[in-house]
Every structure is written in C-alpha cells, then in structure tokens.
Amino acid sequence: MYLTYGDLAKLFPNTTGIKDNELQFHTVAASSSIVQPKGIYLPIEESGDLKEAIGNGAVAALWNEKDEVPTYTPNQFPVFYTNDLTKGLKDIMELYIEKISKAEEKISTTNFLFSDEKSLKENEATYDIAVMAENLYEASENAKRERRG
C-alpha cells in the first residue's frame, strides 16, 4: 500500500507537471544524495539539487512555493507546492500512517529516507518527524514478521 500521487494531491492542490493519481511513490526522501527509487523528493536536509535526486530515482518533488524550481526541471516532472516543507512532510507522514492503519496489505510500503536521522531527533521542529519515521519503520517491520510467521 504505497503513497500515491492522488494522496498528495489532496494535501497539496497546487501542482505542475503530469497529473497521475495512480502514480505510486516507493520512497519519500529528504536529501537528494540518497538513492530513492520511484521517490518523491523534499529538499529539507539541503538546498535542493533536484537533478541529483532525479538521478537517484526521484519521480516527483515537493517544493517550497517561495523558492524557484530549478530551470532545468522537466515540464512533465510532477511538482507539488507547499509554503512549509517541514509541515508538508509531517502532513504526508500523518496521512500515510492513517492510510496504512486502515490498509489490509502492509507489505509494500513507502519508505521514508533521511540521511541523518539523529539530527532530526535533536531538532525541535523535526522531532515529530523522527518519531513518526520510527513508527512507520516499526509498522513495516511488524508487517513483514507477521507475513513470515
């Protein structure tokens, strides 16, 4: 039960690029340098090298509407806009926690990737994100154990 374009379009109605509600995101990455297959990239941990993120597998991005999207961004590349990236990530995680809590199939889950999880916990603004990331990771591991057991 992956996160989809349709899920995010409800949270972030301002978009550019292709609109495909069925598009699934296998990863959500906060850094462009992480390998992020079929990922949605959020430039939270650094300035935002979108080209590097796409090279690492990103198929969409969440962008701060106050910041200019790089001029090289392909016209078809899906970009969602928010006025607060950190809040945007929290909203995505809350939505996803709710989504998988109701889902029967919990094996195919979206992975949330951070290059430095320790610093997330040390920062007041991102502490909630670190906790939710741990909860999601545990839920995913439990689902895998249940399946094996």
Binding site: E46, S47, G48, K66, D67, E68, P70
Partner: peptide, 13 residues
C-alpha cells in the same frame, strides 16, 4: 536577494 533559504540555493537561482 531573499534572505530565507540556503546560500547555495540562491546561487543556483
């Protein structure tokens, strides 16, 4: 130039 946002980003744009 906008004050918010990292310097490297301002350079890119």
């Amino acid at each position: 130039i906008r004050e918010e946002g990292p310097k490297s980003h301002q350079k890119k744009t």
